Simulated assay, not measured.
Amino acid sequence: MLHFVPRHSFQKLVDQYQGDKHTRSLTCWNQFVALLVGQLTGANSLRRLIEQLDVHSQRHYHLGLQSVRKSTLADANHKRPTAAYYGLFFHLLSRLSKQKGLAEVAGQVQLIDSTTISLCQSQYQWASFRQQQSGIKIHLLYDPNAQTPIYFEMTPGRVSDSRAITQLSVFKGVTYVFDRAYNGGQWLERLVDNGCLLAE
């Protein structure tokens, strides 16, 4: 799977956002590979992720991966800038768009929705959500024909769905499907003004 991620492009993004600044052991590439392994193996905790890495330690060299400690990975996840990974998403999306012809948007159906991820309040106080709980929302624009997300935004859990998509680019002739959480007047007016089609 790492063959789909151009290492030089990834490093360019890391350098741009100074992701490896003051890093002594765990580089952003090592962090990325570790998290990818965790995602693919269904690890539900950092401890489980490290166990998966240790089981396959003989393959670390071929992945360009060094030894990863749980505490170091936890610190990296907490402190590292996320902008490099955000940039990687859109870089990979642009490559997919060229291969699949996703630029031809007229007549397409695109789905808009959000999901909330609960977080530990003591560690993520900035992500205000409920009285005794922190959380973030991921707001997603999904293309069902290409079977891929084509836009996303992360916000604190309390941010309303309609407010989070104010920066979303919309295109004439596209049918946007969403639920009533997005029924804000300005948002609907922008869709109509741009010749979009609406489905609730």
Rank of each mutant, 00 (worst) to 15 (best):
N183H: 08
N145A: 09
V55H: 07
R48M: 06
V192E: 15
Y61M: 04
T72W: 01
K100E: 14
L26R: 06
Y61E: 15
T115W: 05
A103E: 15
A83S: 14
M1T: 05
Q132V: 02
L188T: 05
N77F: 02
Q123S: 09
F89D: 09
R163F: 01
H22C: 15
D179P: 06
T82Q: 12
G185N: 13
P156Y: 00
A146R: 05
Y17K: 00
S122G: 00
F32K: 02
G135V: 01
F129P: 00
G19Y: 03
Q108P: 03
S97L: 02
S134I: 05
G42K: 10
L197Q: 03
L188K: 13
H3I: 15
H3L: 14
E51R: 07
S97E: 11
N194S: 14
D161T: 04
I165N: 11
H3M: 08
L96W: 11
L197M: 11
N145S: 15
L63S: 05
G107Q: 04
F178T: 09
P156H: 02
I50A: 00
L102P: 06
A83H: 04
S67M: 14
G157D: 00
V109T: 10
T41M: 03
S162R: 14
Q31E: 12
L63C: 10
L188F: 05
L93S: 05
L49P: 03
K137S: 05
P81C: 01
G107H: 01
G38I: 11
L111G: 00
K172H: 13
